[in-house]
Design a protein around this nucleic acid. Sequence first.
DNA 1: GTTCCGCATGAATCGATAG
DNA 2: ACTATCGATTCATGCGGAA
Lengths: 302, 302
Amino acid sequence: MSSSHPYSPIEVKTDLLLGDSREILTQLPDNSVDLIFTSPPYADQRKSTYGGIHPDKYVEWFLPVSEQLLRVLKPTGTFVLNIKEKVVEGERSTYVMELIIAMRKQGWLWTEEFIWHKKNCYPGKWPNRFRDAWERLLQFNKQKHFNMYQDEVMVPMGDWAKSRLKNLSDTDKMRDPSKVGSGFGKNISNWVNRDKAYPTNVLHLATECSNKNHSAAFPEELPEWFIKLFTKEGDIVLDPFMGSGTTNIIAQRLRRDSIGIEIMPEYYDMVKKQIEPLQLFLLDARPTEYESTKPGRRKTVR
Amino acid sequence: MSSSHPYSPIEVKTDLLLGDSREILTQLPDNSVDLIFTSPPYADQRKSTYGGIHPDKYVEWFLPVSEQLLRVLKPTGTFVLNIKEKVVEGERSTYVMELIIAMRKQGWLWTEEFIWHKKNCYPGKWPNRFRDAWERLLQFNKQKHFNMYQDEVMVPMGDWAKSRLKNLSDTDKMRDPSKVGSGFGKNISNWVNRDKAYPTNVLHLATECSNKNHSAAFPEELPEWFIKLFTKEGDIVLDPFMGSGTTNIIAQRLRRDSIGIEIMPEYYDMVKKQIEPLQLFLLDARPTEYESTKPGRRKTVR
DNA sequence: GTTCCGCATGAATCGATAG
DNA sequence: ACTATCGATTCATGCGGAA
């Protein structure tokens, strides 16, 4: 057990729970989760697996869940809900909007709406409609102040930056006269040699092409982005509609503890089979050193 | 002025009306407009120029307008509303959603929500929020069947399509069995060997940042896209919140008649000054042929 | 005439300060 | 307490002048 490793192995705990979220969630303690990221069954979608909730009943069906989520989430935590209303008789349904309004009455703050632009969605043509290439990522919070680690998701900056940094003198001083004396230089130091910019609330991600055995898997980048943004290592992530387990698998990869709830035994077993080998491997490996082959992919389960 | 031009000059009528939309609209006849495209003053925004409507009062303020718009629009016409809710005390306001719900009760069909991705959105950094890079383009209709000229807005096909079409047969069909049998295969045949593709409901445009005299003009491509999509030459376009007149100017360029209503005399005069010189020029030029210098920029007013 | 480079400016939002 | 104003923060784009 040589240990020249800079840090001791961190155990990542992944709890998979089989059952209905409305019941299972009541067993979780108050204020215990840092991030909830989930993509619930959409109204009338996935009929074969989830039974299909009628659009008119969707809000009514979801509110008991969101009530539990509100209880379970830490005050500084965040709830990200991936959802998109379907077309019913030529119209977009309004249940998502009704849900947002109802959740606010429940006590949630509707902080932001991110757009997931699905870059490579299917081609398709309808007489009165184009391809639907985006989904909503609704951010809810308990408080105005919550944990957010913006630096973790910065993106490469446009070309303009390089040329701009050559001459900081004119425009910047004009637009910011108060800082010309003292603080100005300090702020400029933030800019020099900066090649990253903060992202916007529009995410450009391709849909997952690899065939998961789940009917509605989102790309790994999606939970990854929000997990990085709203949690740090060791935090707890919850997905009350686990599905193929993407959220939990990514959480594990990023060394966040996680809880996944799934009502369908098939999916539950499938994810379990994906998690357990790692668990066993790591139990074996624990006496000796465990070195992940891929950086950033260290996995531990207990 | 030689006249080898392939078609005779078409007269395009542009009516500019000064006053409050709620009053002016009552003077327009029923079922007379093919497309309404507008970007009303957002709640509490542009206070210096418009009154500034409080978020709580927004729905109440807008409903009388939308009631008139419903009357004025042809049964086969479309209403496209460009709007975005602002942040109030750390939360996104819900007035846009409440408006959609209220307009449906008024008799509108909420057919679709397009996303305008603003590539060059306003900069800034906040502890709990990223830059807002998108706005809503809400499509409302009177009927399930309306005029839509999809071929007019086709876009060059990206490289992704070619590579993607190669392996459509495998993964994609597996993932969505419902589509394999019926329409899917047929749709693909529309795609193969094409160099143009139908767009999606996500539009990527930069905001206009050159020197207009209006504070917040949307880019010309925005009305252009919807005018091409929902009207043909000779149709009538209405913008009840004209502002800098972009909608009407583009309508004119595309040889659609248009009506613009503006409450602020400054903007009204400004647009008028832009339209009138053309009008005079064309009156002079009518006996002979009028040849536009820039292709796609032909302008006619009577 | 091109290409390159400098430059102003946006439907922004937060937090502190002032009335 | 509650509202109005102000300063600070920050990035992509298209224009115009220069090389």
